[in-house]
Design a protein around this nucleic acid. Structure first.
Lengths: 363, 363
DNA sequence: CATGCACCTGAATCTGCCC
DNA sequence: GGGGCAGATTCAGGTGCAT
């Protein structure tokens, strides 16, 4: 992958340096998840984050909006491209921003071939009011979640997100308080970092899009919320931060963070996570004998189990799914829940037998 | 302003034609407010079926197909520039979109010199779920509100918005239902337009950013919601629509719309939904740490809280409700009152913690 | 006439694995 | 990388019919 001379991936470290330069030192395809909270002050971007850091700028007196956007766009493309190289093919990336910069980021993402999966709205319970009364209270920030491409098989812990939301699908709008109170880092009574993100936000991102043990990269580490949430949730982190003071604050903060015990980190599992049991195995294990009759819930159709794990119904024969779809005239069918067998005078789904088979196979 | 040969501004008319061509015929600086609902460029690759095998009737119209981002960007720049010419200096523009297109739109806006005032999130009370369980439910759309420039003195009816929101500043996230039921236009039982917007959404936009008597332009008129809301609120409208069938449907629809007398405009009060607090939020907010033990009132069962808001008990895992039902051998269970945590030697229902969470989340 | 239940639908970039 | 196939996957709200 052209990684000659790259350093091995430093794990659980915060690197002090320019994010693009430091990203280029990391090995390709080594990171599972990126969370980025890039700067969005366009003028600052012009001064502080010029891609080629070696050139001292002295020509910014006459910069205008256009050149400012242009500089910001170049900067955005550079760090997004650098992240893309470092991401594993099935990794994914989150970026948070506001209307000042998020459109530039989203456009750059798409132009680079990232595939947007969702835009997620962080609704703040306690936003700063609009003091002048000339606009709507700016009560949210926008996150973009993207995979490395349209075909990528990214991680999404659907069941965990559903569990977090009382058994309803997690929506694209998240209500969470801003970072304040004891969680907010302070030095001499003043906040250490101007845009410290709440841990709850990062925890949800990490729970949604990574597994325990994964490596999470934050190219704009700041006060270290990403690293804190990653450590707490049993993930490894790599942080990049150009300000020594922020890096130090983050390191200090990490010292008191404990990783949760593995049992607490177990993710809610759905059927997808279960081991696959082909229907034929039920026959092989003797849970269902060849010749047994299967019925749909209304007992309108009857099919016979055959020794090879196919079923036959009214002249047609094939898998439980194919025949289930066929008798309904449907495009597809989950035969496990469609077909039932008779037990004690009642019809029970063959899915029950699959559970039995799983137990037998596990022991 | 170089308007020689332009037609006078047609008021309360729907023009059939290409939006850019028609915009160029209109006089410069003649419009107070633009609301635009451009094609989203959805790029749907496959058919989608619900779990019950019914087909989702998605947007597959030719007008939503673009060959590349580049083509879409050019189209976007062209219509935004044309709108800019037609807008009065103190007018403003709204565009609605989704993550498929909104970043392109926002970038184009900024590049053309528009000044973003807010991005406003339309949170849908009843969005379509994510049927395959592979992403977050796409539960919102994004609107960008922009003035013609940084110095422009745009209209914002701060007090009206505050009144709509129980005397609190209107936030940048709006909760409104999608357009369905009697409001949804239908022909032969099928929806007339695939993406009809709710009147409530347009009413709020128009109330926020225009005065009675102002002229409101919609370059992608569709089924006419902008015109309907404008007429109802005593504003003039100009609509442009390429498809004759949509233009006709909009004209028919307008016939039965009455302009409200100013006094009754006060009637529409915003409803504030009570915040729903999922169990997972207690974990996210740190009110209950992962690993904490929960007990039923008699302390016969013990369950452990996990980081994703699921709980685990004797090999089973799931939501507080599911596991509560499971250990009791019941069909259902209210986990909030069933499960207790230990505090000061006593067992207290986790419902107590929900009250605390609600306070933290109160907005 | 009220209640209940079955059915329908909405701007959707919506699968994973094996061969 | 494409084809084939197993099999996993939905929430809020409106309409309309049956009881």
């Amino acid at each position: 992958m052209g990684d000659t001379g790259k350093q091995p991936l430093p794990r659980n470290k915060i690197i002090v340096g320019d994010c693009i330069e430091e990203l280029e030192k990391l090995p390709a395809e080594s990171v599972d998840l990126v969370f980025a909270d890039p700067p969005y002050n366009l003028q600052l971007a012009n001064e502080l984050y010029r891609p080629n850091n070696s050139r001292v700028d002295g020509v910014d007196d006459d910069w205008d909006k256009f050149s400012s956007f242009e500089t910001y766009d170049r900067f955005t493309r550079d760090w997004l491209a650098a992240c893309r190289r470092v991401l594993k093919p099935n990794g994914s990336l989150w970026v948070i921003g506001s209307y000042h910069n998020i459109f530039r980021v989203g456009t750059a993402l798409q132009d680079l071939g990232y595939w947007v999966l969702n835009d997620v709205i962080w609704r703040k319970t306690n936003p700063m009011p609009n003091f002048r009364g000339r606009r709507f209270t700016n009560a949210h920030e926008t996150m973009i979640w993207a995979s490395t491409g349209q075909k990528a098989r990214y991680t999404f812990n659907y069941e965990s997100m559903k569990a977090l939301n009382e058994d309803l699908q997690m929506r694209s709008d998240w209500l969470l308080p801003i970072c304040s109170g004891a969680e907010r880092l302070r030095q001499d009574g003043r906040k250490t970092h101007p845009t410290q993100k709440p841990e709850a936000l990062l925890q949800r991102v990490i729970l949604a899009a990574s597994h325990p043990g994964d490596v999470i990269l934050d190219p704009f580490m700041g006060s270290g919320t990403t690293a804190v949430a990653a450590k707490r949730l049993g993930r490894a982190f790599v942080g990049i931060e150009r300000e020594k003071a922020y890096a130090k604050a983050a390191r200090d903060r990490l010292k008191s963070v404990e990783t949760l015990d593995p049992a607490s980190l177990q993710a809610a599992k759905g059927k997808r996570a279960e081991t696959r049991v082909p229907f034929g195995t039920l026959v092989e294990l003797g849970l269902l004998s060849p010749g047994t009759a299967l019925y749909d819930p209304a007992a309108r159709h009857e099919a016979k189990v055959r020794a090879d794990g196919s079923i036959a119904c009214a002249g047609a024969q094939g898998s439980i799914h194919k025949i289930g779809a066929h008798v309904q005239g449907a495009m597809a069918c989950n035969g496990w829940t469609f077909w039932h067998y008779e037990a004690g005078g009642a019809l029970k789904p063959i899915d029950d037998l699959r559970a039995e088979a799983r137990q037998k196979l596990a022991s």
